[in-house]
Nucleic acid binder design. Sequence first.
DNA 1: CCGGATCCGTTTCGATACTG
DNA 2: CAGTATCGAAACGGATCCGG
Lengths: 156, 156
Amino acid sequence: MLRKVKPSRRRSGCPVSISLETLGDRWSLLVIRDLMVRGYRTFKQFEQSDERIATNILADRLRRLERNGIISAEADPTDGRRMNYRLTEKGIDLAPLLLELLIWGARNEETMAPGELIGKMEQNREGVIAEVRRRWRERDSTPMLPSFANTRPARN
Amino acid sequence: MLRKVKPSRRRSGCPVSISLETLGDRWSLLVIRDLMVRGYRTFKQFEQSDERIATNILADRLRRLERNGIISAEADPTDGRRMNYRLTEKGIDLAPLLLELLIWGARNEETMAPGELIGKMEQNREGVIAEVRRRWRERDSTPMLPSFANTRPARN
DNA sequence: CCGGATCCGTTTCGATACTG
DNA sequence: CAGTATCGAAACGGATCCGG
């Protein structure tokens, strides 16, 4: 019994494997969205985001995202006990992916936003991405659009 | 004790919620990739894909994706016992998302493909997406590129 | 054979309480 | 505030079984 389930024919050089170890769960992309689009930076902000992630899961995801080089963590200069999380370059590179996810959701899931806003972003993908990059480069932590925020942008 | 965890301030009209009920797991997007890019159509093909999903999980994901209107299932006309799964319009709309995921992985994850191929796709996002749509419209089930396939495209 | 369903041990998740 | 600890619930996944 117990035949060897053909261990060959793996690694068959198919170049479309996609890496979902880090992103293939319910929470990681939400944290990234909060960082990228809402301007969130701290544990508390993520925790109080709409979807109510549990604290242990949040801690785990933050660690995982950091291990994977998608975010970085540094102590707040003005308040040592507070951590500030930021997207790395690799994390910022997720902007196109996130934008497409937003567009898809707005188009196909009726639980989503009205879509007028998204429609405009869809017309101007390049511009939106460029704006995300510009803001991160200048450490501009205001949310991408006023209505994107549901807390103030942590101006100290 | 047991304070009410402030049930207000939900539904705060933040238009950037993203829907990961269906896609936020390790397998759903892989199945969609197999459909979209590899030309897979049957349970067996998905099962034998590189990542080795368990049959019960695969059955569950196929059902979920169908419930969510992302794929459809119909009996094969030439072989009644075989099911053919296809992307719906909603599923095809995931092409841009999937493309961005591929590009991101190729760029940032060293476990990924050489990337030359992906680089070309990156130069021509619109073209790639249009090609995906064309093929699905014409029920052309050959994989997007020869090297994308690791089994033959199920010609019977 | 094909597309699953069922069983069952293991892993992960997630709500809550707790801590430095 | 920023996380740990705990523990029950859910999901996973390997193996096997089954109807057509």
